[in-house]
């Protein structure tokens, strides 16, 4: 909680790197590519993102909004464009059982993969 490497945006990016995922901060969004395991997008790397503001309390508090390019189609749940990159949409997706994983970034990846199983292009 006190080290830069485990908390906040830097902690998120470090945790993702521990999981083999490279993140890039573009303005107010941290983006990275994830492969969906099943569903219409299975096997494809999909760009996804998290708002920097939502990472301020990482890892004690997980983000809520999942940022995706507008070309990705999801069942609409309060989608909007607040704080998104041009051509992106953020979707309301509540993560479940937060706090059970040893590595929080691993849990976030699992959450995103779960979201992407419902996605299409």
């Amino acid at each position: 909680m006190t080290g830069v490497s485990t908390a906040g945006v830097a902690g998120f990016i470090f945790g993702m790197s521990q999981c083999g995922v490279v993140c890039e901060q573009t303005g107010t969004v941290v983006t990275f590519a994830v492969e969906a395991c099943t569903g219409p997008l299975a096997g494809q790397p999909v760009q996804t993102g998290v708002g920097v503001e939502e990472l301020a309390m990482w890892p004690a508090v997980p983000p809520h909004w999942v940022h995706l390019p507008a070309t990705i189609t999801l069942t609409p749940t309060n989608p909007n464009y607040d704080g998104t990159l041009p051509g992106w949409v953020r979707h309301s997706r509540q993560i479940v059982a937060w706090g059970d994983a040893t590595e929080p970034a691993q849990a976030w990846l699992g959450h995103i993969r779960g979201v992407l199983t419902q996605a299409s292009q």
Binding site: P62, P63, Q94, W98, G99
Partner: peptide
């Protein structure tokens, strides 16, 4: 509160 499941951290952000 997180360990007793009295608080879901995911609810904090919303």
């Amino acid at each position: 509160m997180l360990c007793t499941s009295q608080l879901d951290p995911a609810d904090i952000m919303i």
